[in-house]
Design a protein around this nucleic acid. Structure first.
Lengths: 166, 166
DNA sequence: AGAAACTTTCAATTTATTTTGAAAGTACAA
DNA sequence: TTGTACTTTCAAAATAAATTGAAAGTTTCT
């Protein structure tokens, strides 16, 4: 396997994983390209490397910046903008955990808490409360796990689950 | 809020969360309906409650059974099939963790390991290896966390992250 | 064997998401 | 203030995903 093949395989694999978890493929692939690039890249660069349009690149780069995963870099004497990815992978993980928690988990926790306040006065309502309660603890676990990632030091996290292996 | 409104809100919220994490909305809503139903439901029942077609119901019920989240139940004297959801929510969580790990995480771990074997003989290849290495440990953490859910007792899991809160 | 009561499949359709590309916008230089 | 070199926006087009519904399949009963 040549380096080019390895790079393409990585970009492809990362895009596939992303779509399976509800993230836009182009955004993930753009991120992958920037992650493995030693230098900052221009919009033209990523357009060419991924064969995507200017509009697509512009919008997804902006989303990546919103997620705190990519920074704009201005080079002196250059009018166009360059982009560079956050290189600390654990910081990337913390950032993703933070955003997904904020956007997706927190709203669900709020709805579940609201629903918990409903009376359990019929068999249906009783079963409903049982399910809401159970899901609350599962979602709470997910929420806490994301929180752990957000707040944790890298070493603590890596160690945290090593015992699971042996 | 009436019970009907609460039920609808739950079904809607669950469907939204699912799509955000790459799971089909109908499948999640079908699951929600079965979860909160005290008795097993027929295909007709769920078709009516969610206003979906027979084909849609049939395919998604099959998927739910493939995921190990729903069981077929035959009633004596009834020709048609009834469906009942796994009621132990932590078992549901274990099952989902197991399936997503198997379908989505494991293949990525394999590709990352394959890519790790590439030489780091140029600046590009060196940066590439740095990224692959970092992602391996992040994906490894996710993999271990899912594994913990899969293997753990409910009580252990709930306790595991309580310290994060205080 | 045939009919009744159901379930499954899948090509066609609909809906949702992503992508494009050109117009509009912005910033700088002359 | 005009031109140049860019970036952003967004309506339209393309693509992907989900859904439908009717035909085909299955099982059970007579």
């Amino acid at each position: 396997m040549t380096f080019g093949e390895a790079r393409d395989k990585f970009i492809h694999t990362w895009g596939t994983l992303a779509t399976q978890w509800g993230i836009n493929r182009s955004m993930a692939q753009l991120h992958a390209v920037l992650l493995i690039s030693p230098e900052a890249l221009s919009t033209e660069d990523v357009m060419e490397q991924l064969q995507i349009s200017r509009g697509n690149a512009s919008m997804n780069l902006r989303d990546l910046m919103d997620w705190g995963l990519v920074y704009k870099q201005l080079k002196p004497g250059e009018r166009r903008e360059f982009f560079i990815a956050e290189k600390d992978i654990w910081k990337v993980a913390r950032q993703v955990a933070k955003e997904r928690r904020r956007r997706e988990i927190t709203p669900v926790v709020e709805v579940l808490n609201e629903l918990k306040a409903m009376p359990a006065d019929t068999p249906e309502a009783q079963e409903f409360q049982r399910v809401i309660g159970g899901l609350s603890s599962v979602v709470g676990f997910a929420d806490n796990t994301l929180n752990a990632v957000i707040k944790a030091e890298e070493n603590w996290l890596i160690g945290q689950f090593l015992n699971v292996f042996r």
